[in-house]
Design a protein around this nucleic acid. Structure first.
Length: 259
DNA sequence: ATGGCTAGCCCGGCTAGA
């Protein structure tokens, strides 16, 4: 059995103690991190390696930045979405661990439907879809997790009327996410939970978490071969509590097969 | 109707997030 976590930490250095506690608590085999908000040279390698994890890091100053932590050493590490899309931001990292491909993504936010950043988001997602198709053609065992910045359905939104056709919920974004799942990628959370009201992000402002006004925008997707072996998937909502939380909670999936 | 926090950057007020 192995366990995968995805978590948008909103600054790796601010969240380091929480991350180390999560590694101790959950003992995941693989951790997909987004929004490091630092260059590779500022990444806290030492503390994470001391906890028993290899770090594959694609950093960027101030914004973005993604990493994959793993107990086992990857045999291959690829940084960036290129050549499937031209991007100056650090939003994708891939590691091959034994015969399983792990992909960590931080999808652009898009800011507002119709804006330049929205167009960038749509173009980026088209490129990412091509990347995923390419990897699925080569790896039957594939897991892709991250902050997708799209709530797939109204049940993933605390107030669908308020969010109707807004950023993260628009038809264009949802259709692109649908095209990605049609490649043969399954939202592991929905294998185990069909209900509404489960979120992975809550706004820092206006008591968003306390009122459970959130969105489910972070996922662990698995290829068919992997999804068949997925024994559980959940959101670690407690991680959003207490002092200095990220605005995202970790998503955790377990698989029966080894890596 | 607006903004409400948080983080990083260069040092108080900006960008960005979602």
């Amino acid at each position: 059995m192995f366990k995968v976590v995805t978590w948008n930490v909103n600054s790796i250095n601010v969240r380091l103690e929480r991350l180390l506690a999560l590694l101790t608590r959950e003992k995941p085999n693989v951790v997909l991190l987004q929004e490091l908000k630092c260059l590779e040279e500022k990444f806290p390698f030492e503390a994470i390696q001391a906890a028993g994890y290899e770090c594959s890091v694609f950093g960027q100053k101030t914004y973005n930045g993604v990493a994959i932590l793993s107990k086992r050493s990857p045999t291959k590490v690829l940084k960036g979405i290129e050549p499937f899309y031209e991007d100056s931001a650090a939003r994708v990292i891939r590691t091959l661990i034994d015969d399983t491909m792990f992909i960590c993504c931080y999808v652009p936010n898009g800011q507002e439907v119709g804006s330049d950043k929205f167009q960038y988001k749509l173009g980026w997602l088209n490129g990412f879809k091509k990347l995923l198709k390419d990897e699925l053609d080569n790896h039957e065992r594939l897991v892709v997790g991250g902050d997708f910045n799209i709530a797939p359905q109204d049940i993933d939104v605390h107030n669908p009327a308020l969010w109707k056709e807004k950023i993260l919920c628009s038809t264009k974004e949802r259709n692109l996410l649908g095209e990605i799942s049609q490649l043969g990628l399954i939202d592991t959370f929905r294998l185990h939970e069909k209900g509404a009201g489960f979120f992975s992000w809550w706004d820092y402002r206006a008591l968003g978490f306390q009122k459970n006004e959130g969105l489910r925008i972070d996922f662990i997707l698995a290829s068919n071969a992997m999804a068949k072996t997925c024994t559980s998937a959940r959101i670690d909502r407690d991680e959003r509590k207490g002092e200095k939380p990220s605005d995202h909670a970790p998503v955790i999936a377990s698989f029966e097969s080894p890596i």
